[in-house]
Structure formats: structure tokens, C-alpha cells
Amino acid sequence: MTSGTNAMTSNMSGDTILKVEHLSMKFGGLMAINDFSFEARRGEITALIGPNGAGKTTVFNCITGFYKPTMGMITMTQRDGKDHLLERLKDFEITKHAKVARTFQNIRLFSGLTVLENLLVAQHNVLMKASGYTILGLLGLPAYKNAAKAAIERAQYWLEKADLVDRADDPAGDLSYGAQRRLEIARAMCTGPELLCLDEPAAGLNPKESLTLNALLRGIRDEGTSLLLIEHDMSVVMEISDHVVVLEYGQKISDGTPDHVKNDPKVIAAYLGVEDDEVEEVISEVESEGGAH
């Protein structure tokens, strides 16, 4: 958060933070994801797009441990060079040790807790250690009091970023939809992640809220956290992402800069649809192009 870490991350940006190799996920007879590989680079916003039912959320759930993939390897490289094989970790360990945080497509807040409490729950592991796994904290030792104060300061920092300071003491369930989205992102950030995975952060937002969200996400990237996001809203994707991966029927059809993807005939075909005979035409065109590279 300080300029020091900023400088450090900018030095290291560009190297791979998340590497997904040959990922496959089968639900019974359905192949939801088929041999999917991509890389996300540190300090970038990587977007995962694709039509409905393409398997984007399944990829997310595999990365964050909510599903165990049928096949494949997911490697998360931390800033200090440490590698974590995410497919082997449990869901909570991925956040705790590998420093990957996520949000959900249908917002999951603790609606009965206040906005501030939501952000404090996110700092559970730090506070737990500071409280000596509750025992020392029960005795009222100063170490825990300091940690609790630091936690509130950290929460306050993200409240300001997400423009929620005025609502800090209100129940999270009382917030408007857009504010709930921002709170969920702030809450994920309070876990201190290196990679933040957002599942359709702009869904259901009006254009104005969408713009504020873009600014928030850019701010997060500039502070050194890499982002991976699923999005339907093309204006958001093209506006803020540095790298776009397109998924259709569980397979990667395109991978590159927003401009590259925008003009990829395969992507256009996937989104707008083409006649059957045209598909083959398009594919052969693409393949000849690929061969030329």
C-alpha cells in the first residue's frame, strides 16, 4: 500500500502470477471445461469472457477451490517467488495461504453484520493470530488491542476506497445493490490478496456505478494486486482489462489484448453467431492465420 511496495511490484510486474494448465472439469457426462490453459500476469487486469454457459464461473470455482478440477494444474506464484498448487489446497487455504480472494456472481455479504464488521471478518486470520487463537485476547492483552485497532484502520482505508465510510455502521443488507458490490470487493481486499478474482462485478450496475467500479478496480491494480475478472459488460472489459481470454463451450477460443480479441473472427462468431458453413470458413481462415504466425 505504500510507495515502497508499489515500486517493488512495478519491478516485478509482467511475470506470471497464475498459470492454469490443461484444466478440465467434468460434471457427470458433461465436460464443462475441456483442456483449458491460460496465464495471468502480475500487475494486470485479466478478463475471462465468453457467452452464457461457456464455463467461466466453473473456471473461477476451480481456481478458488470451490470445485476440485477433474484434471489440470493451477499454479499461483506469490510475490516472494513461492508457488502454490491451488488444485491441492482447500478453499479457505487458498485465501489464507495462497493469497487469492474472490467475490461472487450473486453477492454474498453477511447481511446482518454491519459494513465495518464485514470488513473485520475478512481479517479473521490476522486477528486470530494476534489474539493468540482467542486465549490471549480473552485476557485483554495489549497485543490484541493493537491488532484490532490496526484492523479497523485497514477497514477504514478500504471503506474510503469503496466510498462507504458514511455507511460503516449500517447493516450490509441495508446497502443499495451497487454499494453491496463495492463492499464485497472491499471485503475481499481486506484479506490482503495478491490476486483478486471478481465474478461479474458490473452485473446489475447502472452506467454511473459502472464507472466508479472501473476506477476502483484500476486503483486496486495500481496498488499492486492483480485482477482476474469474469465480465459480460463489454464496455467494462474493453475499458479496463489488459489481457482478455475468451472461453466458449469450455474451450479457449481467443487470448490476447482487448483489441486483438475484439477483431478475432472466432470471437465475433461466438458472440453474434454465424451460419454453419461460415463457421468452417472462419475456422480455416483463423487456422491459416495461426500457421502464418
Binding site: 485465501t95 454474498r108 455479504l109 453477511f110 446482518g112 479473521h124 486470520n125
Partner: peptide, 13 residues
């Protein structure tokens, strides 16, 4: 009590 899945996504055992 509020949401178990969200708890796990925040690294709570």
C-alpha cells in the same frame, strides 16, 4: 450464521 460459503472465501476455517 450469515453465509458459510462467503466465510470460506475469506479464508476462515
Amino acid at each position: 450464521r450469515e453465509d458459510e460459503i462467503a466465510c470460506r472465501s475469506l479464508g476462515i476455517n
